[in-house]
């Protein structure tokens, strides 16, 4: 057993690895048990250090870095592997959608016409026999021109506009679109009503228009009273 007074000092000295101080060295010369305790402490610390040193400086396997590189590549590759099919798939979907839009027929149902924005509606083709409407048969061709098939909906697209330019077109205000569509549908369903509408239209014969000549009374010209003016230079000119 070391002496109580020197116990802490000898442990500190052994832990720090430094040589014992003068007083402690003198004591070691006199006390064999403290000398032995100091040697024991030094041995303990060196055992700890050598064990730690052996554990901390183990040989690194040569396979470590290549294996890490391989795992890094595995980590990076799936990231790109996921990205590429995703990009391809989205490109295919976009292409298919574009093809679908281009190949889509340009006509729409009358009900859809009402839902759309400003539209241009082809007007019924002018009848060749307009001068003699009474000769039109009940299933006349005038009404046939208003068939829904010819009732093409044209959007603002210039391509579509040019594609449908064979028919005459009218611009329909948004608030009248629904009514017009309804009228066209009704006329298609009830031809007799359409013919009646056409027949009731009052005939208007051309006549000579006479214009009465304009009557203008004589104009009396009088000088205005008290309209003397002076110029700014004060010359006193009278007009």
């Amino acid at each position: 057993m070391p002496c109580k007074h020197y116990k802490e000092a000898l442990i500190e000295a052994a832990a720090s690895g430094a040589a014992p101080s003068g007083e402690l060295r003198l004591h070691f010369g006199e006390c064999a048990s403290c000398r032995e305790a100091f040697a024991q402490e030094q041995f303990l610390f060196s055992a700890i250090d050598s064990d730690r040193h052996a554990a901390a400086n183990a040989e690194v396997p040569a396979s470590l870095v290549p294996r890490v590189r391989a795992r890094l590549e595995e980590t990076i590759a799936p990231r790109l592997g996921w990205m590429q099919p995703l990009v391809l798939a989205s490109a295919c979907v976009a292409l298919a959608f574009a093809v679908f839009l281009m190949a889509r027929p340009h006509h729409a149902a009358p009900e859809e016409v009402a839902k759309q924005g400003p539209v241009m509606v082809p007007a019924p083709t002018a009848p060749k026999t307009k001068a003699n409407p009474e000769k039109i048969s009940p299933s006349g061709s005038q009404i046939g021109a208003l068939r829904v098939n010819h009732f093409q909906v044209l959007r603002n697209s210039t391509n579509r506009h040019s594609a449908a330019s064979s028919n005459r077109e009218v611009l329909v205000p948004p608030d009248e679109r629904e009514g017009l569509a309804h009228l066209v549908a009704t006329l298609n369903e009830r031809r007799d009503f359409a013919v009646a509408l056409r027949a009731q239209r009052p005939e208007k014969k051309d006549g000579l228009v006479t214009v009465d000549p304009l009557q203008i009374s004589d104009i009396e010209i009088k000088p205005l009273e008290g309209t003397e003016t002076e110029t700014s230079d004060g010359a006193g000119e009278t007009h």
Binding site: A55, A58, V60, L64
Partner: peptide
Amino acid sequence: CGPLAYRVARSVLRNTADAEDVAQ
């Protein structure tokens, strides 16, 4: 820095295979 990571793991684990796994 690979060897450093391995040595840290090795001194804690005291096992070569485990230390390599941990370092990776």
